[in-house]
Write a protein that binds this DNA or RNA. Sequence first.
DNA 1: CCAATATATAACCTTTAAGTAATATAACCT
DNA 2: AGGTTATATTACTTAAAGGTTATATATTGG
Lengths: 125, 125
Amino acid sequence: MSAAPSLDAIFAALADPTRRAILARLLEGDATVMDLAEPFAMSQPAISKHLRVLETAGLISRGRDGTRRPCRIEGAALARVQRWIEDYRAVWDANFARLDGVLETMKRERRHNVAQRRAGKGQES
Amino acid sequence: MSAAPSLDAIFAALADPTRRAILARLLEGDATVMDLAEPFAMSQPAISKHLRVLETAGLISRGRDGTRRPCRIEGAALARVQRWIEDYRAVWDANFARLDGVLETMKRERRHNVAQRRAGKGQES
DNA sequence: CCAATATATAACCTTTAAGTAATATAACCT
DNA sequence: AGGTTATATTACTTAAAGGTTATATATTGG
């Protein structure tokens, strides 16, 4: 009955590198909380919290195996993200031509950056 | 010279619904800060902050047109997310078979939910 | 140059997120 | 039953996110 988790929750869950590392680990197969905690310099409760965030986002599910709670990666949430991105595809495809142009410019800029600066094209982040 | 923005920054930027709405609006074409602020019940500085987050994440770029700073959507960051997701594709493809099973079950559940419940298949989030 | 417009920055407040240590719960094993 | 192992929960701290208002900066047009 759980409503599909929101994109908010999914993206927020993915924004944390620890959680992405957990997902990457789960690509190799299901794992227990202890397994998942092991590579990190972080307490077990911290990992449990991360797992809860991932579960709430629908990115993992959890079973029961004795006293363990094996975690499994769930593709549906990621599929949802990918579908969301697809909507932007046409636009960025259109932009790729422009991007190519920009890359050209950057190459030339690196070679002639003094001239560029003289032209008053200063552009920082 | 700006290094490619981190996935952390990109996902965090995408986690906010206002910012996703801004991106959606930018699909229709470049827009100024005022244009982007208009649909939201939010102050102009709040929008400026969101735009800064999006820009830092590499999701938009900004030009100059008189006193305006037109915003443009940038595909590269989204492409980066999509490439990241690709790594998980094999896994969720494997899961789709299972997911199909679940969808089947849900359909039947809607039709025969009483019978389903009798079978003790309760599954919550 | 001055006024107006568009946007950015500063200072502040409130809520949420990520971590901690300590403790509680749950399932197994003997 | 009772100890052990695996995980969850609680209470707390710190820092960051998202919003506000007020003010500053920048660019144009007259």
